[in-house]
């Protein structure tokens, strides 16, 4: 509910409150979606890595599920980042893709790396090993995120409109930006919660069906972790 409120407020601010950018005009407003999406997606990858560490330490399959959902949703947001980034680049620089922009390129590399997360899970049959290997991957990739940004940034002289410049925004723009960031972070958290609930519900459903001896109609190969019945509980 809060998510809906903050997101609508953010969109209202983006379209009616924030001023047009002096040299980019109306299209600069995509900034309020693009940058928060990117921040939340990267944050999601890092949170996923932290949850993977928790999984490796406790061996609790619920942490693996949390980590999986966090990375999975961050990957969805990352697609949004790449698309909005390309649209903005087209409007601002006249090209759909610019190799000189380090942030864009780093993001693509990270996206390509995380795109292998699901195939990796999918390729391991044993659920326990799948969870363990996926967590190892999540930790390694989580460490890779900042290192990769550093390396690619070194390579380019170009300046991406960087996070630091948010401090130099005029007040009305900054307010809009912060509300958007909060809105998208809340959206991510809400989606995470919903997906977790849905995963638990379908695990419970499967367990019940098995108890009734019904044919396992929901058994479909999926990259998502399968929770053992004992591990079910609250999000």
């Amino acid at each position: 509910m809060l998510t809906v409120l903050v997101l609508s407020a953010a969109l209202a601010l983006v379209f009616f409150y924030a001023p047009d950018d002096a040299d980019q005009g109306f299209v600069q407003r995509i900034f309020y979606i693009h940058v928060p999406l990117a921040i939340v997606a990267l944050g999601g990858f890092v949170v996923g890595a932290a949850m993977a560490v928790a999984h490796l330490r406790t061996r609790d399959p619920r942490w693996d599920m949390r980590s999986y959902v966090a990375i999975h949703l961050a990957l969805v947001l990352a697609v949004g980042v790449l698309i909005t980034g390309a649209i903005w680049a087209r409007a601002a620089w006249g090209v759909w893709w610019d190799w000189n922009d380090s942030t864009l390129v780093s993001f693509l590399i990270i996206f390509l790396l995380y795109a292998t997360y699901q195939p990796l899970r999918f390729a391991i049959e044993d659920p326990e090993r799948q969870a363990r290997y996926a967590s190892v991957f999540a930790v390694v990739a989580g460490v890779f995120v900042p290192l990769n940004f550093m390396a690619v940034r070194l390579a380019q002289a170009y300046v991406h409109p960087s996070l630091g410049s948010a401090k130099n925004l005029p007040g009305s723009m900054r307010l809009t930006f912060l509300v958007s960031l909060a809105g998208i972070a809340l959206l991510y958290a809400t989606l995470w919660k919903y997906e977790m609930t849905s995963k638990y519900a379908s695990a419970q459903l499967r367990a019940l069906r098995r108890k009734l001896g019904a044919p396992d109609a929901t058994a479909r190969r999926s990259a998502a972790p399968a929770l053992p019945p004992a591990a079910q509980g609250t999000v």
Binding site: I109, I110, L113, P119, L120, A123, F137, V140, F144
Partner: peptide
Amino acid sequence: LAVRTRARDLIGPLVALPLLI
């Protein structure tokens, strides 16, 4: 990581190449 997956020849390079960029 890749050796125990079903498609190890696929997973190995797919994971290693972005990491080695």
